[in-house]
């Protein structure tokens, strides 16, 4: 066919990686504009799913914060029946720090203990008559890092303290720590269960909505293949579309929840007023927001990818 060799091949306007990418993005946006209704429904459904998930995260994050402030009450006290020299304080402190997980150590001298005692008994000074600093113990108060404040960890820490020469009596609110630890186990388990369930639901909903939007265009997918499009060429605009739907859906959910937060929730201290430090709710940290957006993008991508596999026969 000689005429075909002579025929000049028109310059491909979109060669190179960036050119192709530009074409694909343009195509994806065009597809969205041509299927506005389907896209609105998809994005709406995705954002509803993400709304539920982020609401759950918001609650969980705040619950964690409350328990954080509660757990600050956990502290380990080592008692001594004599006054320590500053050298002894320093050497004990460094030994205790070496046991790990310590966030701070304060030495409470007999004088200081007396002062605190007096303060606590204000108005009932009569009771103090027989008490002199010599009858009170001096002590080292040890504050722990967050991960050390529960059950096993704190028990292990205390055991390590007790094995140190020169340390006799060690006390920590054992009962309270145990109850707190049990409570945290329940909270974490419930959180994990509910969170896992919600994530599954979101994955299912997003994947299926996207499958519907792709199903509604299966004729187009078929035809593209018939006129000689490669699988890659057919897929990419749909993948971009899916990623956009995921990001916009998740973003919309975050915006909605941010709106609700700044309207009502941020000063909802009545909810948690039993704890001063935790008054009011905090919003999701930036890392969580980024995680949700990335999750949306990934779900959109994977949802499109798996659905496309079903409808591209090529």
């Amino acid at each position: 066919m000689s005429h075909e060799k002579k025929k000049k091949r028109p310059k491909l306007a979109r060669e190179g990686f960036l050119g192709r990418l530009h074409y694909f993005i343009e195509r994806a946006l065009l597809n969205i504009r041509q299927n506005v209704l389907v896209n609105l429904i998809t994005v709406g459904t995705i954002s509803l799913a993400f709304l539920i998930l982020s609401l759950f995260l918001l609650i969980y994050v705040n619950l964690e914060r409350v328990t954080e402030t509660w757990s600050e009450r956990v502290q380990v006290t080592v008692y001594f029946d004599r006054e320590l020299t500053s050298g002894e304080v320093a050497s004990f402190s460094s030994k205790i720090r070496a046991a790990g997980g310590v966030s701070g150590i304060t030495y409470v001298s007999r004088e200081e203990a007396m002062r605190r005692f007096a303060q606590r008994l204000k108005g009932q000074e009569k009771l103090l008559q027989d008490v002199t600093p010599e009858t009170l113990p001096s002590s080292l108060e040890i504050r722990l890092k967050r991960h050390m404040r529960e059950g096993e960890a704190i028990a292990g820490f205390v055991a390590r303290l007790k094995s140190m020469p020169g340390i006799g009596e060690v006390q920590y609110g054992e009962e309270w720590v145990k109850r707190f630890s049990d409570f945290m186990v329940v909270v974490r388990f419930a959180g994990l269960l509910l969170g896992g369930f919600l994530v599954l639901a979101v994955v299912f909903i997003v994947a299926n909505t996207i499958k519907l939007t792709i199903y509604s265009r299966k004729d187009e997918l078929e035809l593209m293949g018939l006129v000689g499009a490669t699988r890659f060429f057919i897929k990419v605009p749909f993948l971009i579309e899916g990623v956009l739907q995921g990001i916009v859906g998740a973003g919309l959910a975050l915006l909605l929840i941010l709106g609700a937060y700044s309207l009502f929730l941020h000063n909802a201290d009545f909810l948690l007023s039993f704890s001063q430090a935790a008054a009011g709710l905090v919003f999701l940290p930036l890392s969580h927001c980024a995680f949700l957006l990335a999750g949306g993008a990934m779900l959109g991508f994977l949802g499109s990818l798996t659905s496309l596999k079903r409808f591209i026969t090529l």
């Binding site: 491909l12 306007a13 593209m224 006129v227 060429f233």
Partner: peptide, 9 residues
């Protein structure tokens, strides 16, 4: 569509 697939401008 036929030409887009070929990468025409």
């Amino acid at each position: 569509l036929t030409l887009e697939v070929l990468g025409w401008g």
